[in-house]
């Protein structure tokens, strides 16, 4: 089915270190899944594999044809103007028009001709999102895209991502180590530890969500991550 992801017994070794160890995960079309885990648990490795950046793996997985990704750093080409950054790599379309439309969606239409190095961190990350979405992905991979942003920019980005996801309806695999972020956005939260999924929570809450609405769930997820959250309890 378009947009569906199926992963069975995926394993990956770097030298003697087994980063992914028999990982199973299904993502339904249009589903927003957040992948939580501590640093070094294999989150980013999984995304890289799904993005086709790492082919040497054991096990089986299938992803849609159209996969797109936004990275922790925006990774814009500094020597190409913002609109070119968005349209480069697209073929058979009017790049400028497509880029302008995408920029309007992330509310940066006035920055089409700017150089990327003149953008703030949040703006650059929005361009990076626009660049990922303009490819009309069936699967959107987000690798801690808000990790380097300040708290205010972050929460604006959360709303933006949610809105864009509703409009375009790609399946999303969102890697983060921020429990609140995961619970705000995802249909389902999965916890990765030592290379496999160790816990899974469905988040059946109306959107847009408030932090107050998932206080108990937050404690549970934190417990799965091995954190006794005294503050939240």
């Amino acid at each position: 089915m378009a947009g569906a992801v199926s992963i069975r017994g995926l394993a990956k070794e770097f030298g003697t270190r087994r980063v992914l160890d028999g990982l199973d995960l299904e993502i339904a079309p249009g589903e927003f899944v957040a992948l939580l885990g501590r640093s070094g648990c294999g989150k980013s490795t999984l995304l890289r594999i799904l993005a086709g950046l790492d082919a040497e793996v054991e096990g089986a997985f299938s992803v849609p044809d159209k996969v797109s990704m936004a990275f922790q750093q925006p990774r814009l080409l500094p020597w190409r103007r913002v609109w070119r950054n968005i349209s480069l790599g697209l073929h058979g379309v009017d790049g400028r028009a497509v880029a302008e439309k995408a920029l309007a969606e992330v509310r940066l239409e006035s920055h089409a001709d700017a150089w990327p190095l003149t953008l703030s961190g949040g703006e650059a990350q929005r361009v990076s999102l626009a660049r990922a979405l303009v490819r009309e992905p069936e699967l959107l991979l987000l690798d801690e895209p808000f990790g380097a942003l300040d708290a205010l920019t972050r929460s604006a980005m959360h709303r933006l991502v949610e809105q864009l996801w509703r409009e375009h309806r790609p399946s999303v695999l969102f890697v983060t180590h921020d429990v609140d972020e995961a619970l705000l956005l995802a249909d389902r939260v999965v916890v990765l530890e030592a290379g496999r999924i160790v816990a899974e929570h469905r988040v059946d809450l109306p959107r847009p969500r408030r932090r107050a609405s998932f206080v108990d769930l937050r404690v549970e997820v934190l417990a799965d991550l091995g954190v006794d959250d005294v503050e939240a309890a």
């Binding site: 993005a51 950046l53 990704m69 990275f71 990774r75 080409l77 190409r80 790599g89």
Partner: peptide, 23 residues
């Protein structure tokens, strides 16, 4: 990192050279 992004974004080999490597 930029080359990797270009691959994910579907750049052809020519585009990777023209827009990432040479600049």
């Amino acid at each position: 990192a930029l080359l990797e992004a270009a691959r994910v974004l579907g750049f052809s080999r020519f585009e990777r050279i023209a827009h990432v490597v040479l600049p």
